[in-house]
Amino acid sequence: MNRETDEVREAIAGELRLMDPSVRTSRSLARQLLDPDFVEVGASGRQWTYGEMLAELPELGGAAESGPRYEPSNFIGVLLAPGLVHLTYETTFDGNRARRSSLWRKQGAGATWQMYYHQATPIPPDGM
């Protein structure tokens, strides 16, 4: 049930930009898309803070132009409240699949949408 509002479309666009190698290797571009209160629980189980993610994103998977890239599918977005969008989707990266959930927020007039929270859960090879 994808409620295709402008807010949901903008959050999906931000999510896709964060998968772009040119954004992943640019701390200044990534900074624009991550909320200062950002937290991630990665598919490995590791928790990332805003500062850790900005520091390490250029070295993480999906950052090399010639390397494997994230292949997203099945986006579902819901506007939970003014300025708060929840996205769920799946990715395939280098043969590994994950279910993903993100919260995007926009604070105040003229602000941009930024990822506030992200979680990735591996999908076992049998797809269960």
Score class of each variant (00 low, 15 high):
W113P: 03
A11G: 06
T92G: 03
A30G: 07
M53V: 05
S22H: 06
V23P: 00
Y116V: 04
V41S: 05
L18R: 14
S73M: 10
R24W: 02
A98T: 10
A111H: 02
T121K: 10
S102I: 05
G127I: 07
R31K: 12
A81F: 08
N96M: 09
W48F: 12
G127F: 04
V85R: 11
L34E: 10
L79D: 04
A98C: 13
Y116R: 14
V41R: 13
H118A: 09
L84I: 12
D6P: 13
L29W: 00
R17K: 13
P122K: 01
L33I: 07
R3W: 03
P82K: 14
P58R: 03
L79K: 15
L87G: 14
Q32C: 06
L80M: 14
D20W: 10
D6M: 08
R46T: 13
L54P: 04
L33W: 06
Q119P: 00
E65P: 05
L80D: 03
L18P: 06
L87W: 02
S26A: 13
G62D: 02
T49N: 07
F38Q: 02
I123G: 01
D6E: 10
P82D: 14
S28I: 12
W104A: 09
L79F: 03
G77V: 04
L87R: 10
T88P: 02
S66Q: 10
E15R: 11
E15S: 10
R27K: 14
R100I: 09
T5C: 05
N2Y: 00
R17I: 01
D20Y: 11
E4D: 13
R105T: 13
V78T: 15
M115N: 14
D94V: 00
R100E: 09
S101Y: 11
P124V: 08
R97L: 04
S73T: 11
G83P: 02
